[in-house]
């Protein structure tokens, strides 16, 4: 009985984190983006500096009519948002935020593989949406999503493999237990490649060609309204949380910090994740959208060679220190 309670409690906590953190990131994006553009951002909802803007948005989305285009493939069209969103919830289960056993939803032996595999599934949602909408723009969006995923999955996997090599394990808590501060400079190239590839996989600006709102009208999500559209948006922000959390765990040492590693480890994890999330927003505000050919070129001629070089470096250092 205790076990059941324990599992239930963990799931509830993970679900709560899953519902809250993306909204926090979203609100931060509203405000940070506004100030970076010399604006104030939302100021009214909730009274104090528009803190409840996203809650208000959610209520608005829930009130909207749920429309399925006449020619669309009904079932798949309706299923797609769930396929896009659920994988991130699953990934969140495996990310450890503190050193103790109770600071992770579920320890998974092949953690890296689990996380990357499930994140890859999330993209299927966009593909399904793109195809099932019966809309040219959606189809173009779907095609671009697929092309982007194929190009950026590889550097992501390679750099994750580099960390796994360094730690000698593929379990996420295992990697963090093996972490030393000098991994930071050692794996810095891998970290950058991982983060950039992750951004591209999430289709965040400047890698948002698949949803380019000014040319293909939000790509795969053109036909979506109301709650289903909100789910897609939520998936994007959950993706940011997951990517930042993963980068923190794999490359930035998670709960390790200059002081207070015992007991306050989770603060370090959250702090690093928050800083990375700020970076995601910052990049979005600063850079224009990459063209499709530039996207592919960046992945195949820059990121993958860098990732391979990182693996070689990891291997050499690993052999040298043994």
């Amino acid at each position: 009985m205790n076990d059941v309670l324990d599992v239930a409690l963990r799931l509830v906590v993970v679900f709560a984190v899953f519902m809250v953190l993306p909204l926090v990131v979203g609100q931060t994006e509203h405000k940070v983006m506004a100030h970076m553009q010399g604006r104030l951002g939302p100021m009214y909802a909730g009274g104090f500096h528009g803190w409840a803007q996203l809650v208000a948005d959610g209520v608005k989305f829930a009130q909207k009519e749920d429309i399925v285009p006449a020619d669309a493939d009904r079932r798949i069209f309706q299923l797609a948002p769930a396929v896009a969103l659920l994988p991130y919830l699953l990934v969140l289960v495996a990310i450890p935020i503190g050193p103790s056993e109770s600071a992770v939803g579920q320890v998974i032996d092949a953690g890296i593989f689990f996380v990357l595999a499930v994140m890859g599934v999330g993209v299927l949602g966009s593909l399904m949406a793109g195809w099932a909408s019966a809309n040219k723009f959606s189809l173009l969006g779907g095609l671009r999503t697929a092309a982007q995923l194929l190009a950026y999955e590889l550097p992501m996997l390679l750099t994750a493999a580099s960390v796994a090599m360094a730690a000698g394990t593929v379990s996420l808590p295992g990697i963090l237990n093996a972490f030393e501060w000098w991994w930071l400079p050692w794996q810095i190239v891998g970290a950058i490649v991982f983060f950039v590839a992750g951004l591209a996989e999430l289709q965040r600006p400047p890698f948002d060609m698949p949803v380019a709102d000014s040319e293909i009208i939000f790509g795969a999500y053109t036909e979506y309204t109301g709650l289903r559209f909100a789910l897609f948006l939520l998936a994007e922000y959950a993706g940011i949380v997951v990517l930042c959390g993963l980068t923190t765990v794999l490359f930035l040492g998670g709960w390790h910090g200059p002081w207070g590693a015992d007991g306050l480890g989770w603060v370090w994890t959250l702090l690093k994740t928050a800083i990375l999330a700020f970076g995601v927003i910052w990049l979005r505000v600063t850079y224009p959208r990459l063209r499709e050919d530039q996207l592919q070129k960046l992945a195949w001629t820059v990121l993958i060679p860098l990732a391979l070089a990182q693996i070689a470096l990891t291997g050499i250092v690993k052999v040298a220190i043994q």
Partner: peptide, 26 residues
């Protein structure tokens, strides 16, 4: 066989099917 399971998802669901769908859309 936990490892095989996740690799199965990663390679087949994450990549092969995406490639298939890409081809079908084309």
């Amino acid at each position: 066989a936990e490892f095989i399971a996740w690799v199965q998802v990663l390679i087949y669901v994450g990549s092969v099917v995406v490639l298939l769908l890409f081809g079908l859309m084309l």
